[in-house]
Design a protein around this nucleic acid. Structure first.
Lengths: 337, 337
DNA sequence: CAAGTTACCGAAAGCGCTTTCGGGAAGAGG
DNA sequence: CCTCTTCCCGAAAGCGCTTTCGGTAACTTG
């Protein structure tokens, strides 16, 4: 490939001039620029990114940190959707994504350390346990950062309007005539879990509906299995709910399984509404009614906030709340008389 | 954070000695190493990766290229599983993953160019159209590379045993009494599509079963929608099959939808077996019988082959074929008499 | 005690690029 | 014809690190 020095030798100009020609400085004659560009193409010259970063202090790389809370890594469809759209948006601006580990050669180090080592221009953290020390450390640092699916006053954040989403869900069930509405919740240590609980409580209150004992049930970390277990407990109640708002689609799938195993039907015997609108729920039986989170929009917003910070070179703490939408499918029906 | 120079000044040693202490050279006294390490910890010193790469010619980064054939990007569960396990395996060795775009600032460039620019140590390409020029270019290059889900004599590859997988599927249906077995196939330009077709043909032949006209149907690029359309064509045949081997789970989901929409039942009226064993198929109705690809194993094998090449510093062209497994669920049943 | 090892440390060059700053040539103005 | 701009170009320093090679001090050995 050759270096800029080879290019200089080949064209007869100095490396300074070559560098300037390549970087569109204005103090280089159009003809010499043309010559240099031509020569560069001929010898397949490509600038070395490390050398560039070293001298410009800009790496054009964005570090991404996934929460590994429930070991899902990049497998979770919701986060995948976000990261995919985030990637598209940042790519357009010339940034590459770097997935760093906590492991530098044999030494282990924190994510922050690793990102500093790599000298990334910015960091995106996708969905996280707000108590995670690693995340806290990142938010505390002075590297531009945007956090997704979690609120914080310390840095730019973007997340879905979970309060509105919960209200949408509860109201939908209410309009179908349901009054005994339970909530299978995500853990409160997760922002999404906590705010959906809050939204549920507010919505119930606004409708003057009491929350029966046992109706608000923690199902942990959004897995199918946990959703199933939670539903089973609900079904064992003296007066089981006629409708359940579930804080995540995967949990909702588990809930439906539990209902079926009890010989009951969804939605005839019990209505279920999920949250997220992941792809697969269109294909389960019954097709799941849910609250759609706009992953494209979230990813783009995150990219926007981060790029803004990186170019402004100053710490911003903007908060972007992305609207959600009720998607009606077949898992909710009017309450049985 | 400071540089190695600051560390030198602080400890009173030369930067040479500091560097050596940090890199475990043996010609530095244990006591001075201890001092230096202590000072490094105190001032939160972290080596700059760009500077290191520049002088060592090693970046500890692996470039990953996703096929974007059907625009799924990182959303496809099968590839996600692979990349996730690949990540774990390479992470342990100290490598980070870099998702590069084809876009360098405003100039657009090929993946190969981008990876050269970034000076990655190796490349992994996940699943691809074998005709893709970009992929060809990568395989032709002299950067260590491993290709997943596709065969080639030009570089190291790892893929599932699709021939055996297809045979497993067809034999399973045969044993249930089916003789009219169709195949909803992936496109032949995709390696996985082509070899599963091959496997289907071989298996049918071995069982002395003819492939009726129309029974081998191309459903393109593995989407739900294409699978559905293919199934509809199958159902319109004079003598529709009693069982269908579908080359991918998503297509199988579509196929099931089509069957249901025709007022028929799976597996009572028609048996369906998929391929992949993605998570969601455990939750659809009926739970899908399928051929499981071991994504963990594939990812690890890919990591192993790549790391081997990177450390050996020579081009290897090993081929690793990962075994598959029949997972029996509820979408296949004995043929109706 | 002289000569030969061994252990430890540092000067300096180099990795490939950017950017400041100064200088020469050509053109403009009086 | 002389001075002042403007336009191009290049020398050199610097980004933060690694590694070769040589040198000094301390330690053996006979």
């Amino acid at each position: 490939m050759g270096t800029i020095y080879d290019l200089a030798k080949k064209t007869g100009f100095s490396i300074t001039t070559v560098s300037k020609a390549l970087n569109n400085y204005k103090d280089v004659n159009e003809k010499t620029r043309a010559k240099i560009l031509k020569a560069a193409a001929e010898m397949d010259y490509l600038p070395n990114a490390h050398a560039q970063s070293l001298s410009t202090k800009k790496s054009w790389a964005i570090g991404v940190m996934f929460s590994e809370a429930n070991e899902v890594g990049m497998k979770h469809p919701f986060f995948n959707g976000i990261i995919e759209s985030f990637r598209h948006a940042t790519e357009e601006q010339g940034y590459d994504l770097m997935f760093a580990s906590r492991n530098l050669r044999n030494r282990d180090m924190s994510y922050l350390e690793h990102f500093k080592h790599r000298a990334v221009d910015g960091i995106v953290v996708i969905c996280s346990d707000r108590m995670d020390e690693q995340v806290q450390e990142l938010m505390q640092s002075d590297i531009p950062i945007v956090v997704v699916d979690m609120d914080s006053a310390d840095c730019s954040v973007v997340y879905s309007d979970n309060i509105a989403g919960a209200r949408l869900a509860v109201n939908h069930l209410y309009e179908l005539g349901h009054r005994k509405i339970a909530h299978i919740a995500g853990d409160r240590t997760i922002d999404a879990g906590a705010t959906r609980i809050k939204g549920y409580e507010l919505a119930m209150q606004a409708l003057d509906l009491p929350i029966e004992p046992g109706y608000l049930i923690n199902a942990g970390f959004f897995s199918v299995e946990e959703g199933k277990q939670a539903m089973e407990k609900l079904l064992q109640l003296e007066a089981p709910p006629t409708a359940v708002f579930v804080a995540g689609d995967q949990m909702a799938i588990g809930a439906i399984e539990a209902v079926h195993e009890h010989g009951l039907r969804v939605p005839e015997d019990i209505s279920i509404i999920g949250y997220d609108d992941i792809d697969m729920i269109k294909y389960i039986t019954p097709k799941l009614t849910t609250i759609r989170q706009d992953t494209d929009e979230i990813g783009e917003a995150a990219a926007e906030l981060l790029i803004e910070q990186m170019t402004a070179k100053e710490r911003l703490t903007e908060r972007r709340v992305i609207p959600v939408k009720l998607i009606e499918r077949l898992s909710c029906a009017p309450v049985k008389k």
